[in-house]
Design a protein around this nucleic acid. Sequence first.
DNA 1: CAGCGACATATTTTT
DNA 2: TATGTCGCTG
Length: 707
Amino acid sequence: MLEQDILAGLNSSQEQAVISKAKSILVLAGAGSGKTRVLIHRIAWLIEQSIAHEQNILAVTFTNKASHEMKQRASAILKVDLTQLWLGTFHGICHRMLRLHYENAGLKKNFQIIDSDDQLKIIKNIITELGFNPEFIEPKSVAHFINQAKDQALRSKDTKHRFPHRPDEFHDIYNRYQAHCDMAQLIDFGEIILRVYELLKNNDSIKDFYHKKFKHVLIDEFQDTNHIQYEWVKLISGKEATTFVVGDDDQSIYAWRGAKSDNLMQFKKEYIEPELIKLEQNYRSSNIILQAANAIISNNLDRLGKNLWSEKPEGEPIQLFDADSDTQEAQYAIETIKNLQNKGETNKEIAILYRSNAQSRLFEERLIFENIPYRIYGGFKFFDRAEIKDVLAYLRLITNKSDNQALIRIINYPARGIGKKALESIRDIAQEKSISFWDACLSIDQSQNTRTSSSLQKFIELISNLENEIASADLPDKIKATIRATGIQQALESKQEFSKVENLFELVSASENFRIDYEDIDIDQLDAFLSYAALDNGDTEDNDNAINLMTIHSAKGLEFNNVIVVGMEEGLFPHQRSVQELNGLEEERRLCYVAITRAKERLFLSYARNRRIFGSFISCIPSRFINELPIKEKENFISLSQSYNKPSTSTNTTKNYIGKQVMHKKFGLGIVLTAEGDDEHARVQVQFAEKGVKWLVLLYANLEIVN
DNA sequence: CAGCGACATATTTTT
DNA sequence: TATGTCGCTG
């Protein structure tokens, strides 16, 4: 492989980033500017030029998808299998480190990862145990509190003075929750990072090991890192390491989850003279689309500043559709799709993007009606399906008898006569003797001779026999045996739930394809698979040619020839609740920026004047983001509107004002937000550009409709 | 212990 | 509207 091949086709900024020899490098990469490419090519460059061996490189992403893609593309360029390269998600990398140093991290070899579902269940149990009222101490708030604390590297002993406004119960539950997880050898998502953070902080020899190992640390989507991830990056990079971070503050859309795009600035301040490289040439979108994106995002004040440009032609105008109703909007989307199909566009190059999941329904209905294949992203994850979790719970219990959560899940599924009462007494015994639920089961079994105890006896035998049976079997056989011996398959079949049975066999084939990536880890195949199930959503690349439906959040990182952004209305997008949050509006605007920049060739925007929300119709006004578009340049936009229901003329006139731009002699230019009343009582609420929001009686106000 | 009706609840969710 | 959770009853 020649040097030119790795650098071929890169623009000068991209090349600068790829070959930079600075100690710390901050790449501000605009949407569609080839950021993934730069990361991949830099890894290839470092290896190819023998600047670093692959085992001396650490590359971190946020999603499994991104890390898979990077690994694949990097090894394609180098034409080698990059087995020694540490490339993965924050959680994947940290999990690997915990497996390597489990003892130093205070864990046993068979520790397991729990998802947010399990976490919530444990918290609920603890709230009940402590006798708190879940009406006041909401399990979800507590979960959020705990996760937030862990994201800031805070243990329960620290939270009391850091969050003094929180009720004492929160701190107590956190304390108890962590004790429970430690006992059961379970770690939640936040814990994966926190444990490694503490491990590196407190164990110099392990830290030194990684400082010697990793000479190049590369982080993707840096704007999405939270506090502890940022600190983790600092900890794992030694004095000799080069730190290379890539991010885009304009695409920070996870601030509500604790992501701090400020970390980009922080990096600039904290690292010694980082080389700042901006990737501003966009290769993705037509110029008209790019100009629209730039216009939107320029309304944000909190920006590092970047101006995307493109050598691409203007391209096709953006279509703006003014729909009477949400159903008409759906109809519009379908017509648009059909037109695109007639132009030869394939379905997988068409996406419908919306702000919230509930909006997908109408589009689905129309697509089904028209027999157009579609795919919804971000819905159910394979490993989250109940039947899958049931099978895995059996295996979790077998591999780790102190996993109470797993036991609770399956002790009576399929039903075997161990009800609530029996479980209560198990819980009591476990609490009293400070033992696991499993050990509690064993102790009950010995002491009594009742109906429940014979059911328990059978349960214990089932688990023990299964454990023996699969002890030396390979992974797929372990799963097959579990499906069969536990009666899960039978239970589903008798309920005619055949698609769930199919999923069970999909689980078997998932295990057949599973292999442990890490040779350096001494880990049981089953433990590895269970962790994989917790950390990977099991999404498989599917190649069927279907229309893509997803939220804007899940569209980040993707691109399509044709993008239809629907529901561009005040209250929906920007979402009502975000407008009230601190900096919420700017995040919504970034979301809008992300939505627009997904489009390569054609962009369609639509809003509905009336929408059914929670059962009742409400009237809506177009999103402020529509007004922020450079619509004056008419040739760049096609505005479409169809009125099926002609508004009646004399009465009911206020409705015609909603959303319109109006001119008032005293107050100047404004936009009508809502209206009420008829005839001489008709009033409108106007948001004036300079004078704020006012209610005006139409009869006297002398409003002039501008557009 | 399953099944039903009452009741609240209703952004976004990389791991 | 639609979905999930809770508590009571058969």
